[in-house]
C-alpha cells in the first residue's frame, strides 16, 4: 500500500541526506521524494511516497520526527488530499506527430518543444495519470523522459503548520 507523507523541514545543509539516509538505513521503500522551498524562508517541504503497511508508515513518521531538522510530519493519504507530479517526455513522433498531439490534448499535456523527429511534452497530474500517459506514448517511442516526485497538500483549510508539535528548531529535541 502506498502512503504520501509531507514533512516540513529546516532548510539546513545536509537535511536531504539525513532524511534519505534514514530511509535507506532502516529499509523503508521510497517510491518518490520531492523537496522544495516554501513561502517561509528557511523551511523546505518534502513529500515522500512510501510503500508498506500501516505499521511501516507509523514507524516512518516516528523516525522522521527524530531527525532534528524535521519540524512537522503530516500523513496526506489518510484523508482527502491533492497530489501532483510532473513529467517531461521526448517522443519520437516522426510522421505520427498529429496523433501524438491529439493524445496530448486529451491528457492536457503541453507541448514544450518540437523538432523534426520529436515532440517534447509536459504533463502534470497524479501518479496514475502520468503512468497512463507514458504507457500511451510508449508505442511511438519515448526518446527520453524525466519526472518529478509527487508533491501534495491536504484539501480544505488544514495546513501542516497546525500539525506542528514544536514551535521551533531548538525545541525539537527528542
Amino acid at each position: 500500500m502506498k502512503h504520501v507523507l509531507s514533512a516540513l523541514v529546516q532548510d539546513q545543509p545536509g537535511v536531504l541526506v539525513r532524511v534519505a539516509g534514514m530511509f535507506t538505513r532502516r529499509g523503508f521503500n521510497i517510491e518518490s521524494l520531492a523537496v522544495g522551498r516554501t513561502h517561509i524562508d528557511g523551511y523546505s517541504r518534502m513529500t515522500v511516497v512510501v510503500s508498506g503497511d500501516h505499521s511501516v508508515v507509523e514507524q516512518v513518521i516516528k523516525q522522521l520526527r527524530k531527525i532534528l531538522e524535521v519540524v512537522s510530519v503530516q500523513l496526506l493519504s489518510d484523508s482527502p488530499s491533492v497530489t501532483r507530479g510532473m513529467a517531461l517526455l521526448k517522443v519520437n513522433a516522426g510522421e505520427r506527430r498529429s496523433e501524438v498531439l491529439k493524445l496530448a490534448e486529451v491528457f492536457r499535456a503541453n507541448v514544450v518543444d518540437i523538432s523534426e523527429p520529436t515532440v517534447t511534452l509536459e504533463i502534470t497530474g497524479d501518479d496514475e495519470k502520468i503512468r497512463a500517459f507514458t504507457e500511451l506514448m510508449a508505442p511511438f517511442g519515448i526518446a527520453e523522459m524525466v519526472s518529478t516526485g509527487q508533491i501534495g497538500l491536504k484539501r480544505g483549510s488544514a495546513t501542516i503548520y497546525q500539525f506542528r508539535e514544536c514551535g521551533y528548531y531548538e525545541q525539537n529535541v527528542l
Binding site: 505499521s55 507509523e58 520526527r65
Partner: peptide, 8 residues
C-alpha cells in the same frame, strides 16, 4: 522515552 521504540 523514545516514541519510535514503541512497535519498532
Amino acid at each position: 522515552v523514545d516514541p519510535a521504540e514503541i512497535h519498532k
